[in-house]
Simulated assay, not measured.
Amino acid sequence: MAATAPSDVSTDLIIVGGGPAGCAAALMAASVGTRSLVVEADALCAKLRHIRVVGNVVGGHSSGPELAAAIAGDLERSGRCEALLGVRATRIDAFEEYTAVTLDTGRRLLAPYAVVATGAGPLPVADAPWLTVADGAAVPTLWGAEADGDRPGPLLVLGADRPLGTFLRAHPALESAVLVAYPPGDDHKADEVRDDRRVELLPVTSLLVRAGGDGRFTVEWTDRGGRRGARTAGSAYLNLGSAPAPPAGALVTDGAGYCPPSLQHPRVLTAGDLRSPRFQRIMAATGSGAEAALRAYYARQDVPTAGGSGSDR
């Protein structure tokens, strides 16, 4: 295919992913007169709508659904953004003068630049070498879980990833002890919940979970000092962290599968949780989305920006 830009471009900017980062990119693009097209497989800010309590965003919003509705309303009022919902981008190609985004419907979208903000999803048990779940026991993820006050405690959480803090803030009346078992790599994540009186932290090197016939779980572990222990829990949730799932094509990944901005083609800008696991927060995602849209705008205007193509910030 020729590298020169075709005449049938779809819009000024294609944004793949309609979460906080993608929506922020669309809003920033609209503010500088840039038309954008947001491609989202679900609803706008769909994951955000499952977060009952948010405490680290500006604007006075205290719940995920409230913030998601406000973002969607802002996007609708912008007048320069079109949202394609219920479709998935399966491939992104980058050429000298334009980008092409292929959808699962077979449609191909063209634009001078693309912002990719497809985020990250829950890690499977197979990617947690410290954890073994015996006999295929069904352990749901903590993301979006509701506390069941009728079940006996403690509540076992496998991993100290950030949904744990969200869960505890969303359930202030939960009185059950929360046993958090986590590997060395999660030490810094446990800081968010270390002072919660309900939480008992269990740093381990390995842990085995078995489901009992009464709906309870038996846990056996080896701690950091090599000591073994065992306990019974009334319920259990997976909270292992997240992994990116970028579309095929032009995106360049690092050793962990993330897509830092500095590695990408000049016409492809990454934003939000897709960039790095270090800054997976709503405010960080929205800031990176806005920055990506501005980079595309300045590049189209041939205005140089400091710092090159960006970092994993």
Rank of each mutant, 00 (worst) to 15 (best):
V87E: 10
D302G: 12
R169V: 01
I71M: 15
A250P: 08
C81V: 11
I71D: 06
A250T: 04
G308S: 08
L251G: 09
V32A: 10
D273M: 09
A25T: 11
L123S: 08
S242N: 10
G226M: 07
A3T: 01
H265N: 07
R151Y: 06
P163F: 00
Y98G: 01
A111P: 01
S288T: 03
E291M: 10
F217E: 11
A134V: 14
A190T: 15
R77M: 07
L238E: 06
L294A: 13
V125C: 13
D191F: 12
R107S: 10
A89I: 06
R80F: 02
E146L: 09
Y258F: 15
G144R: 02
G73W: 07
L67D: 07
L27W: 05
V193T: 13
L84P: 02
Y237F: 15
G86W: 00
G225F: 01
P246A: 06
T4A: 12
G86Y: 02
G308Q: 10
A177L: 12
R278N: 04
P154I: 05
V219Q: 07
A83C: 14
L156W: 10
L27F: 01
L201Y: 03
D12G: 08
R281Q: 14
R227F: 09
A147I: 02
V53C: 02
L238N: 08
T141W: 12
W221F: 12
L164W: 01
F95Y: 07
D187E: 15
A147R: 13
G257W: 13
P154C: 01
E146I: 05
P277L: 08
T305F: 07
V9T: 15
R278V: 15
P261M: 13
L110R: 07
D191G: 00
A173R: 14
G55Q: 13
T4Y: 11
P246T: 09
W130I: 12
G215N: 11
A190P: 04
F279R: 15
A170T: 06
A138M: 04
F217N: 00
T105L: 00
H188C: 06
P6Q: 09
M1G: 11
A117F: 01
L174R: 01
A41V: 07
A43I: 06
G226A: 02
R108P: 03
Y182S: 00
H265E: 09
V180Y: 11
T11Y: 14
T118H: 09
A2Q: 08
A25M: 05
G308N: 10
G257S: 09
L103C: 14
D8E: 11
S206C: 05
L13G: 04
A233S: 15
G17S: 12
P260A: 14
A290I: 13
L37H: 08
A290Q: 08
A117S: 15
L142I: 00
L174G: 11
R49Q: 14
L131V: 09
S235H: 05
A25V: 10
A83M: 05
R231I: 02
V116C: 04
T286I: 15
V180F: 05
R80E: 08
R300T: 13
A70I: 02
L179I: 04
T286W: 01
A100G: 04
G153T: 04
C259V: 15
G119E: 03
A299V: 07
A271R: 14
A248K: 06
P261I: 02
E175R: 11
R267S: 06
S311L: 14
G234Y: 02
A173M: 11
S311R: 14
